[in-house]
Design a protein around this nucleic acid. Structure first.
Lengths: 118, 118
DNA sequence: CGGGATCCAAGGTGATACTG
DNA sequence: CAGTATCACCTTGGATCCCG
């Protein structure tokens, strides 16, 4: 398996990318790697996400089989989201991105500065 | 370095994600791993990208120091995009995503089918 | 608490036309 | 060939209100 030299509109990569290539998805997945988290807790931990976007994101993740949702009928209701085995394999990959970001953010910012100076 | 339990709005991960978490960026970066490619060639290989979005994407990538642009003043002009060393390290990480997609697309599609059936 | 429904503003995006 | 400029659109996403 090597790099294709073309990306068809519905090749696997595009299909997956169209679903997960947005920050909320990546962030939610990353956080859920640490264990199950409840809705509002997740919302607090992802700075700036609206409840609409978070619920939308989680619903997509659940549909894709990457996250599972467990509601316990307490009063008021308690909902816990956790990562599935499938989701965990993706999250591991995504975590590489997080690590890259932390290691290279300075280089990127420096490049931007240089570019903008011109 | 381990998983944070919070993502601040301007932590490294968010800053990077805000710039690269869209399909065109990821796809362009992946294709450039194979070596320098010219503008229209890139456009042909990324099914469905408009010239506007491609040029916008490439400009961002150049600004971030991930891709370099070399114009040779032939007539008509020839422009070649290639990945930088910094970009290559990111592309390697991103490639993990592509591989994951190819390996797990069927599981994801199956999960979607199951979800939609309910 | 964990959402769904609705409304609305903003800007991302494509189509088209033009240029060096 | 490799873009830029303009415009019109239409989705995205925030704000708000409501409900079980």
């Amino acid at each position: 398996m090597h790099i294709p030299n073309t990306f068809d509109a519905n090749c696997p990569t595009r299909l997956i990318l169209d679903r997960i290539a947005d920050k909320w998805t990546v962030l939610a997945l990353a956080l859920l790697m640490g264990g199950p988290v409840r809705f509002n807790e997740l919302r607090r931990r992802i700075d700036g996400v609206s409840q609409k976007m978070l619920s939308q994101t989680l619903k997509s993740l659940e549909r894709d089989g990457l996250v599972s949702r467990k509601a316990t009928p307490t009063v008021p209701v308690t909902v816990e989201y956790s990562i599935t085995p499938l989701g965990a394999t993706l999250a591991a990959t995504i975590d590489g991105l997080r690590v890259w970001a932390e290691c290279n953010i300075n280089d990127v910012l420096a490049a931007q500065k240089r570019y903008d100076a011109v």
